[in-house]
């Protein structure tokens, strides 16, 4: 390794230390310049604040029925119509959003944290550590998940914490595999070897050099995972985990809306729209974040090899 390269690496470290805050500032500046990403951010903020304020804003109670009215299309009294038990869909969508967003973000956060750490360590350490860690992932993939969930419910009872756990348990596996694949490729690159030569510890290298370089696929996968988790929650409520009626979630509303899509299309369209808007906003935001955090596009940082 040429002398000057090590020097430049050291200076790079200094830059990071000295300008740690300005790096984030830079990213934020870049993100702000991305109109689509900002749009996504505002939409997400809007959805989250609606969810927080729902109990004060909701036009009706989510459980209040009007059996005689039954399913009715959008009207002045019920902007988005009512479901088969005559409950206001807008209200149920708002309350459902609380559940779905909470589950989506919390469970994804669990899977993100576990999956990324697991993947980086396995991919970076390689050898037998990698083998053991990845075989554990294989085992968890293969276990019959439904039986597992049913058992967990017997032991711990029905709770939201268990819901996050059950979803996180599944979702981190693919995340770990993707991250590991990326890390394996990165590890062979010169700048990592260079970092090793400078005497940085493995943990430092993983955090400072590996993590920033895998953000792209990770962010994309996270933005895919959030809606997938929201839909997955609908499956878990089939097993009795997840929201209990008369509460609802977007996933459950969509799953039940499918069955009546010919008769009462609004029961599918509006929850579907809510999920789509979330997904699009998240993806715009995710792409913007990816670009903003890209170490190579940051002035001076990264990309010293060649």
């Amino acid at each position: 390794m040429p002398e000057n390269m090590i020097d430049s690496l050291k200076s790079l470290e200094q830059i990071e230390f000295e300008e740690g805050r300005s790096l984030w500032n830079d990213a934020w500046v870049r993100l702000k310049r991305n109109r689509l990403a900002m749009f996504g951010l505002w939409v997400m903020l809007f959805l989250v604040s609606i969810s927080l304020l729902t109990p004060w804003f909701a036009p009706y109670g989510y459980e209040i029925q009007d059996l005689e009215l039954g399913a009715s299309g959008p009207s002045l009294a019920h902007w988005l119509g009512t479901d088969t038990l005559g409950r206001d869909l807008l209200t149920r969508l708002m309350y459902g959003g609380r559940v779905s967003l909470l589950v989506g973000f919390a469970a994804t956060a669990v899977s993100l944290a576990v999956g990324v750490i697991w993947g980086i360590v396995a991919g970076y350490m390689g050898g037998s550590v990698d083998a053991v860690m990845m075989r554990i992932v294989d085992i968890l993939y293969a276990l019959p998940f439904m039986i597992f969930v049913i058992l967990l419910m017997v032991v711990f009872g029905q709770s939201f914490l268990l819901l996050f756990l059950a979803i996180g348990l599944v979702e981190w596996l693919t995340m770990a595999r993707i991250v590991r694949g990326q890390v394996q490729a990165l590890r062979r690159q010169e700048f990592v070897s260079a970092a090793i030569v400078t005497g940085l510890s493995s943990a430092q290298i993983m955090r400072r050099h590996i993590l920033p370089n895998i953000m792209g696929p990770v962010i994309v996968y996270v933005t895919l995972t959030i809606p997938a988790v929201m839909l997955f929650e609908a499956f878990l409520s089939f097993l009795g985990l997840g929201v209990q009626p008369p509460q609802s979630s977007w996933g459950v509303l969509i799953a039940t809306g499918v069955e009546t899509m010919e008769e009462y299309p609004w029961l599918l369209i509006f929850p579907g729209l809510a999920l789509s808007i979330t997904l699009f906003a998240l993806n715009f935001l995710g792409d913007g974040l990816r670009d903003a955090l890209d170490p190579r596009s940051a002035s001076g940082a990264g990309g010293v090899h060649e």
Partner: peptide
């Protein structure tokens, strides 16, 4: 079953003022 249970849950709530929790399992 869910919809019947939801309807009855409301009838008891309105008629008797009592709360019932719905639990579904496989």
């Amino acid at each position: 079953h869910r919809r019947i249970a939801e309807a009855i849950q409301q009838m008891w709530k309105k008629g008797l003022g009592i709360d019932v929790r719905l639990v579904n399992t496989d």
